[in-house]
Amino acid sequence: MLLTTTAISVDAAHAAAAAAPRMDPLHHFQVVKYIQMAPFGLDVSISNSVVWMWISLAAVFFFFRYAFRRPEMVPGRMQSVAEAGYLFIRGIVDENIGPSGKPFFPMVFTLFFFVLFCNWTGLIPGSFTATSQLIVTATLALGIFFLSIFLGFYKHGLKFLGFFVPSGLPVLLLPLMVPIEIISFLARPVSLSVRLFANMTAGHTVLGVLFFFAATLPWIGSWLPFGFSVVFTAVEIFIGFIQAYIFTILTCVYINDSLHLHH
């Protein structure tokens, strides 16, 4: 099934160009607008990226609904997994923000499973990885970035600007340190989004190349890349989790910095 879907998508991509199959792993990241629409100048076109984002989010929602269709005191397997996920996020929030992080729990919870399921559904052959789109990860990261700025000013007023002035430094060093602090702060959303985007793009590119070889090489030659691609899919499942985890942890760290200002 893996092989055939890859082959079909490769064929479909190149049938129009009327060319022989050639390696183009990047076409996995090609956004295709299925429905173009832009009411009031707002582009709300529905593309493969958006559709797979919805599939991922529906999977998150229905996974939890299904796991808790009949909540038991002694949980079944699905319920245990769902509860473990819940406790995992609660642990991250407690550890990185503390008791004042309670209001942010739903957001962090949503963020983690949003990213995790987008990473994972992207491993289904023929699917699309929404988190391999820099604009998607950047939207999430900038949302967190602006939230942290808002929280900082909301909680501390103008004292939040002290965030950029390291305490206990000689005044002479301040002209050096303040720009560095500002750069570090601005780098947060960028590195947050680039890290996720780059990991997803790299992983899926490698998978795409392996699948391409598996699909196009003659019979015997295809087994080796196919074996590699199976192993690498397992690695990608792990990386998808780790990246979602890092994204979530850093979100909590940023929120915590804005709430508590100890820097």
């Binding site: 956004v31 607008k33 832009a38 707002l42 582009d43 709300v44 076109s45 529905i46 593309s47 990226s49 958006v50 984002m53 919805w54 989010l57 998150v60 929602f61 949503t110 963020l111 499973f113 949003f114 929404a130 789109q133 604009i135 998607v136 939207t139 999430l140 949302g143």
Partner: peptide
């Protein structure tokens, strides 16, 4: 393809 993805990421996230 940026505009539509920004829009739908925000909306989808909030809905979820």
């Amino acid at each position: 393809v940026f505009g539509s993805q920004i829009f739908w990421t925000i909306v989808s996230f909030l809905v979820l």
